[in-house]
Amino acid sequence: MPPRLYLVLSRLVRWIVTHLFRVSATGMENIPRPPFIIAANHQAWFDPAFIIPFFPERPLIYTMAKRETVFNRAWKRRLLPMIGVFPISPNKGELDEQGLRTVYQVLDRGGVILMFPEGRYSRGRALRPLKNGIGYFALQAGVPVCPVAVRGTDEMRPFRRIDVSIGAPIMPDVPAWWELSRRVTSMVDRVRNAISTALSRRRA
């Protein structure tokens, strides 16, 4: 059961984004049953505010943030875990041991994690190459990846058009006899193609 604070903030954020922006959200029928991973392109730090409200309130959707820059105040260290944000200390794009453990614990409990596999902001530019971690997580946890494409958050102003497209889940069903690296590459490519296709479609 998500904490009451998470539910209140989720509903408040949904009200704000749907009243202060022209949000077009499609594909909610594609959302799989938990556990699963949400993989989205990343244009700005507030992207989660335009993604999480369009997913079911339960279970709580976890996100990750850098320990050094986000969890740098005592009040943040107390508040952020209550709304599903957990700290990571990435090194060259790879998660630290504690971050890895948290990801698998959440998925093992039937939870949902929102990830931005580009690893940094694209800020309206073309989709960056995705980190392999998204493929490893999906394969090793045996969970689907729900691709999400977001457009319009690179320039924030009231009543701006924001498009959120939720794609069909990508199952970790690559042939088991393939080498792990090949299976990971296949998963990553499928996720990237799904997001890229949705972004191109929204431009039309």
Rank of each mutant, 00 (worst) to 15 (best):
P2D: 14
L5Q: 10
Y6N: 03
L7I: 07
V8I: 15
L9F: 12
R11K: 14
R11Y: 10
L12S: 10
R14G: 02
V17N: 03
L20P: 08
S24A: 01
A25M: 11
G27F: 07
M28R: 12
M28W: 04
I31P: 04
P32E: 13
F36W: 07
I37M: 14
I38M: 05
A39Q: 03
N41K: 09
A44D: 12
W45D: 03
D47C: 05
D47K: 03
P56Q: 15
R58D: 10
P59V: 10
P59S: 14
L60W: 13
I61L: 07
K66R: 15
W75G: 02
R78L: 11
L80D: 06
L80A: 14
V85A: 15
V85Y: 14
V85H: 13
F86M: 10
P87H: 09
S89F: 04
E94Q: 13
D96A: 08
E97R: 10
T102M: 08
V103S: 05
L114K: 09
M115S: 12
P117S: 15
P117D: 14
G119A: 14
Y121V: 01
Y121W: 02
S122F: 07
G124M: 11
P129I: 15
N132K: 14
F137Q: 06
G142I: 01
V143M: 06
V145R: 06
V150D: 05
F159H: 15
R160D: 07
R160C: 11
R160V: 11
G167P: 01
A168V: 09
M171G: 03
D173N: 14
V174M: 01
W178A: 00
R182I: 09
V184C: 07
S186K: 13
N193A: 14
S196N: 05
S196A: 03
R201Q: 15
R203H: 11
A204W: 11
